[in-house]
Amino acid sequence: MNKINLLIADDHTMFLQGIASLLEQEPEINIAGKAFNGIEALEIIKKENIDLIILDISMPEMDGIALSKILKKDFLNVKILVVSTHSNIMIISRLIRIGVNGYLSKNAEKSELLKAIHTIVNGENYFSKETAEKHLLNSSKIEKQVSNLTELSSREKEILVLIAYEYNTAEIAEKTFISLNTVNTHRKNLLSKLNAKNTAGLVKYAVENGLVD
């Protein structure tokens, strides 16, 4: 029986070493590589025949979301299982839209991790029961936010990104070559369209929908 070539990518050394130690005990699994960020993981994938990558979302230099996008574009043979402490349904939904093959909490039992690995390698997706329930319960909210994003003009998206990166009104006006009044009008329109109460709400929306890292 061919072994499953596994790559683990996580910037927390204790978790990376711990999960590797657990899985090394399984005769059908080969730990083909370990990486502390997405860039290291990508270099290993270019050199090794990886069947499945277990990755975290928050990693330096290149995070799990950015890496997943690249893999789903250029390395379709590599299956993706996200194992993370993140529970934000909007982030999880974004990963699902990218096309990851599974999602587990870092609190998952070893038995569920193994089940997820085998399910994914055998051609099906695996999402924990809690994740699936959250996604279903919030699907209408997610669809509404995605719909709101498509309603924004290119200029409004540009302004939203600059707001998220903490540029003030004067700086935004200078960068976009528009007046202060026009910037303020765009800000008001963004608050209205995105049902946000304040700037913090706009920043949250931009992050959750992948407009900024």
Results as ranks from 00 to 15, higher is better:
residue 93 S to Q: 04
residue 164 A to Y: 07
residue 32 A to R: 01
residue 106 K to F: 02
residue 115 K to Y: 07
residue 18 G to D: 04
residue 70 I to Q: 04
residue 212 V to A: 11
residue 28 E to G: 01
residue 16 L to E: 04
residue 87 S to H: 07
residue 79 K to N: 15
residue 81 L to R: 01
residue 139 S to R: 06
residue 186 H to F: 06
residue 207 V to T: 12
residue 36 F to L: 11
residue 23 L to R: 00
residue 48 E to F: 01
residue 144 K to L: 08
residue 66 A to K: 01
residue 122 N to C: 13
residue 102 G to Q: 05
residue 76 L to Q: 12
residue 185 T to G: 01
residue 29 I to C: 05
residue 71 L to G: 08
residue 119 T to G: 14
residue 118 H to N: 10
residue 118 H to W: 04
residue 187 R to M: 05
residue 91 I to F: 11
residue 147 S to T: 08
residue 77 N to G: 03
residue 123 G to L: 08
residue 33 G to Q: 03
residue 38 G to H: 09
residue 8 I to W: 04
residue 51 D to G: 06
residue 48 E to I: 01
residue 155 R to E: 15
residue 95 L to M: 13
residue 36 F to Q: 07
residue 67 L to Y: 11
residue 168 N to V: 12
residue 190 L to A: 03
residue 160 L to I: 07
residue 16 L to T: 01
residue 89 I to T: 15
residue 1 M to Q: 03
residue 30 N to H: 05
residue 180 L to V: 14
residue 31 I to E: 13
residue 189 N to C: 01
residue 1 M to H: 06
residue 61 E to D: 14
residue 35 A to K: 00
residue 84 S to G: 12
residue 12 H to P: 07
residue 54 I to D: 15
residue 19 I to S: 06
residue 162 L to W: 09
residue 86 H to M: 12
residue 58 S to V: 11
residue 144 K to Y: 08
residue 94 R to D: 12
residue 103 Y to G: 08
residue 180 L to D: 14
residue 103 Y to R: 00
residue 186 H to Y: 11
residue 167 Y to P: 01
residue 207 V to P: 00
residue 107 N to I: 09
residue 74 D to M: 04
residue 127 F to D: 11
residue 108 A to G: 05
residue 29 I to A: 01
residue 203 V to A: 08
residue 155 R to H: 04
residue 121 V to D: 10
residue 211 L to R: 00
residue 38 G to T: 10
residue 39 I to Y: 12
residue 72 K to L: 09
residue 176 T to N: 03
residue 18 G to K: 02
residue 170 A to N: 11
residue 91 I to D: 14
residue 50 I to L: 03
residue 155 R to W: 10
residue 125 N to L: 06
residue 163 I to T: 07
residue 91 I to Y: 12
residue 181 N to V: 08
residue 186 H to K: 00
residue 64 G to K: 01
residue 191 L to P: 03
residue 184 N to S: 12
residue 59 M to F: 15
residue 134 K to G: 14
residue 213 D to G: 08
residue 160 L to H: 02
residue 60 P to W: 04
residue 155 R to L: 04
residue 198 N to Q: 11
residue 101 N to K: 00
residue 139 S to H: 07
residue 66 A to T: 15
residue 141 K to G: 13
residue 147 S to E: 13
residue 47 K to F: 12
residue 114 L to V: 04
residue 102 G to L: 07
residue 213 D to Q: 12
residue 75 F to S: 06
residue 72 K to T: 10
residue 26 E to N: 10
residue 1 M to D: 10
residue 35 A to S: 06
residue 203 V to M: 11
residue 8 I to L: 08
residue 105 S to V: 13
residue 39 I to T: 13
residue 148 N to K: 02
residue 171 E to Y: 00
residue 174 E to T: 14
residue 121 V to N: 06
residue 46 K to L: 10
residue 58 S to N: 10
residue 14 M to S: 11
residue 71 L to H: 06
residue 182 T to Q: 04
residue 164 A to R: 00
residue 160 L to N: 03
residue 200 A to L: 14
residue 213 D to C: 05
residue 132 A to F: 07
residue 165 Y to Q: 12
residue 51 D to T: 02
residue 163 I to K: 00
residue 105 S to R: 00
residue 24 E to A: 03
residue 154 S to P: 09
residue 164 A to L: 09
residue 133 E to F: 15
residue 53 I to Y: 02
residue 182 T to P: 02
residue 120 I to L: 09
residue 135 H to G: 09
residue 154 S to T: 02
residue 175 K to E: 15
